[in-house]
């Protein structure tokens, strides 16, 4: 990652976080808050590779934790794993199909939500497993499917997707 890419990745994370903290609270869908940051992390992994995905996930999660009263570090742990996991599927993203990218962002978001609930339960935060979790998983994955093109565009703007593609397949 070049200096310019690092700056842009930082800006992308801050932008996603600002949207999550200021716009999302006004847009509850069926009683569930969408997770914009998770969508950006998933797209970051898909398009930027597993290492960049893990790094983006870590910092995005760390920044997210600053605004939560749940145990600090949980979001960074989950987002790191989600970013790394989607990065391992980047060969699918290179097919260029927006539907595939959106589908994987959607599934990764669902996994992220379940992962967060599981880790929360493991560290003693009760009440995370309930019918509400199912609704949360469904809504977050559907909303993130819809916003995946925007998240992917944001990640492409950072330049890490281009670098990753060049490193993997060579300059075209």
């Amino acid at each position: 990652m070049t200096f310019k890419q690092r700056v842009r990745v930082s800006l992308a994370i801050v932008l996603a976080l600002l949207v999550q903290e200021t716009v999302v609270p006004q847009t509850k869908v069926l009683g569930v808050f969408p997770d914009v940051v998770l969508a950006v992390v998933s797209a970051g992994g898909m398009l930027g590779g597993s290492m960049n995905g893990a790094i983006i996930g870590f910092w995005a999660g760390f920044a997210t934790d600053l605004f939560l009263t749940t145990p600090f570090g949980l979001s960074s742990l989950v987002f790191t794993l989600v970013g790394y996991g989607t990065g391992s599927l980047e060969t699918l993203a290179t097919s260029g199909s927006k539907a595939i990218v959106a589908s994987i962002v959607s599934v990764a978001s669902a996994v992220g939500v379940v992962g967060y609930a599981t880790l929360s339960a493991l560290v003693g935060v009760g009440g995370t497993f309930s019918n509400h979790l199912i609704r949360t998983v469904v809504v977050v994955s559907l909303v993130n499917f819809a916003i995946a093109p925007v998240a992917a565009r944001l990640v492409r703007w950072t330049g890490i997707a281009e670098t990753e593609r060049t490193a993997r397949y060579g300059a075209s």
Partner: peptide
């Protein structure tokens, strides 16, 4: 990547 992942996961777990 795996080393980076391990490092980031360990950092997160340490923070928790």
């Amino acid at each position: 990547p795996r080393f980076t992942l391990l490092l980031l996961v360990l950092t997160s777990v340490s923070v928790v």
